[in-house]
Design a protein around this nucleic acid. Structure first.
Length: 502
RNA sequence: GAGCCGCUAGCUCAGUCGGUAGAGCAUCUGCCUUUUAAGCAGGUGGCCCCGGGUUCGAGUCCCGGGCGGCUCACCA
């Protein structure tokens, strides 16, 4: 491009004064024969390791030992005194201060330093000492630029605050806001903990299709897509459930999957269109076994993360010490509303009661669904401390096993924490004839206008016809669990790149 | 999808009754060899989210739109 092409030079992001200054510095480095983007520097140490190893060493010990370190990282701050300067360098493990002295680095080295800015990636070698103010610091004797940054960093004191910028440029958020990094490190620790917990109980981790010809396993609106070569419409999965249970049929007996689900629904502080779900299935277990396992898993997770089973969430102390409260949907509704027992036996009574609550129930809604609506309106939000709510209506649980004593209910629970659903589990329906009937029922609801009712899955029915052992299965919303464990108010705070409008 | 709030320099934010666009940090120049929100002095930097309207005059008032946040609805 030449000056004559002026017309074509369009203002682009990054034409700030700083950007131009840095471009000029970049050019002058190149002119001086310095590659601003080399890749041959290997750091022997990390800031965190240096801090751990030498954080307690006294000034005298450091003088005596002559400890040399090499570090690679990003310059987060520069304090310039003319012929000497301090920098803070950040790597994956933390920060370390470097002291840059013209006497030690020499004219040439110091000239290079003068062309560096906050945000640049550097590598250095230096000898550890303690400054007058007591900070462990490396006296830099060799300095390399490893990557020039052209944009200025967000403000050092406030960091990046603008919520939209934090989500759209998460790399900046993570770079300058240590709390944010902490949340995502915890997220990783939580997922690792769950993997180890389940693996330790002989569950095997599997991966099942994300692209599915039938979007089954949950009541939700799917995303659709199209496979060109096959000329076939496909769905992004709303749940892995039906595939995981095929693996139980197959004899794997204990399986789990931690992966993304996609639901074409609203976005909120509790919902992201793609979210991470843990699902696990255990043969020869019941939903009651799942409650015990869940208590153990989450309480020990809290203990590992916080050193306590009590977790602060947005000003509320959540106590995960087992055993957790267990209550049926029926008892919960009776306890938290003035409903009459009749609503559980008489759909008309349930409908009438729902009207008194201000619910607008669409015509043709099943009795069970009305009960569910009533529960959600009156009781669900009341369960702040971890609570298993059990025995949901049959009609809203087409994949769950009927309760032996009351066939209008299923052996199912949801785990509520802070009034929100964290987990959902049931003893699985393994009677293929019953399953087929339930799918038929769903088809009728679909015909009646419920777009979230299940479709018939012939192959799943056929799998059950080969015989599935009695099994219990559970799904846990990982994002919501991470929210609780990291005291995060929005699901977007625990998803690295939440969905935003273009 | 609805209601409320927000959008001003790279970042964090002021901007009064409608009257020439401001600060701190960052950046640049000068001074400064143990600072840590370093300091001192002096500069540069703006499509006030976009488009209309009212007005002699709009960052400010009105209308429409965009994006984001919160609440609600749907949902996990």
């Amino acid at each position: 491009m030449t000056i004559l092409d002026k017309e074509k030079v369009r203002p682009v992001e990054g034409t700030s004064v700083e950007f131009k200054d840095r471009l000029a510095k970049l050019q002058s480095l190149r002119d001086a024969g310095i590659n601003p983007y080399p890749n041959d520097f290997k750091a022997a140490d990390t800031c965190g390791k240096v801090g751990n190893d030498c954080g307690n060493a006294t000034k005298e010990e450091l003088e005596a030992k002559e400890i040399r370190v090499s570090i690679a990282g990003r310059i987060m701050a520069i304090r310039d005194f003319g012929k000497a300067s301090f920098v803070h360098v950040q790597d994956r493990s933390g920060r370390l201060q470097g002291y840059i002295k013209k006497d030690i680095l020499g004219e040439e080295g110091y000239a290079l330093f003068k062309k560096l800015d906050t945000g640049d990636i550097i590598g250095f070698e230096g000898r550890l000492f303690r400054t007058r103010t007591g900070e462990l610091t490396a006296e830099i004797s060799r300095l390399r630029l490893l990557g020039k940054g052209l944009h200025p960093l967000p403000e050092k004191w406030h960091g990046l605050v603008d919520v939209e910028a934090r989500y759209r440029q998460r790399y900046l958020d993570l770079m300058v806001n240590p709390d944010v990094r902490e949340v995502f490190l915890k997220r990783t620790a939580i997922v690792r903990f769950i993997r180890e917990f389940l693996s330790g109980r002989e569950f095997i981790e599997v991966e099942t299709p994300m692209l599915q010809p039938i979007a089954g396993g949950a009541a939700a609106k799917p995303f659709t897509t199209f496979h060109n070569a096959l000329g076939q419409e496909l769905y992004l999965r709303i749940a892995p459930e039906l595939y995981l249970k095929r693996l139980i049929v197959a004899g794997l007996e204990r399986v789990f999957e931690i992966n993304r689900n996609f639901r074409n629904e609203g976005v909120s502080t509790q919902h992201n269109p793609e979210f991470t779900m843990l699902e696990f299935y255990q043969a020869y277990a019941t939903f009651e076994d799942m409650m015990d396992l869940t208590e153990e898993m989450i309480s020990s997770l809290a203990m590992q993360l916080h050193g306590s089973m009590k977790v602060d969430y947005q000003g509320t102390t959540l106590d995960f010490t087992p055993p957790w409260k267990r209550i049926t949907v029926r008892d919960a509704v009776l306890e938290y509303s003035n409903a009459d027992k009749a609503i559980f036996d008489d759909k008309a009574a349930a409908l009438a009661f729902s009207k008194t609550l201000g619910l607008t129930v669409p015509k043709g809604l099943s009795h069970g669904k009305v009960i569910q609506e009533i529960f959600e309106k009156t009781a669900e939000h009341e369960f702040i401390q971890p609570t298993f709510v059990t025995h949901y209506p049959l009609e809203i649980s087409p994949l769950a096993r009927k309760n032996e004593k009351d066939p209008s209910l299923v052996d199912r629970f949801e785990l509520l924490v802070n009034g929100k659903e964290i987990a959902n589990a049931f003893s699985e329906l393994n009677d293929p004839v019953d399953q087929r009937d339930r799918f038929e029922g769903q088809l009728k609801e679909r015909a009646a206008g419920d777009v979230e009712a299940h479709e018939m899955d012939e192959d799943y029915c056929r799998a059950l016809e080969y015989g599935m052992p009695p099994t219990a299965g559970e799904g846990i919303g990982i994002d919501r669990l991470v929210m609780i464990m990291t005291n995060s108010p929005s699901i977007r705070d625990v998803i690295l790149f939440p969905l935003l409008k273009k």
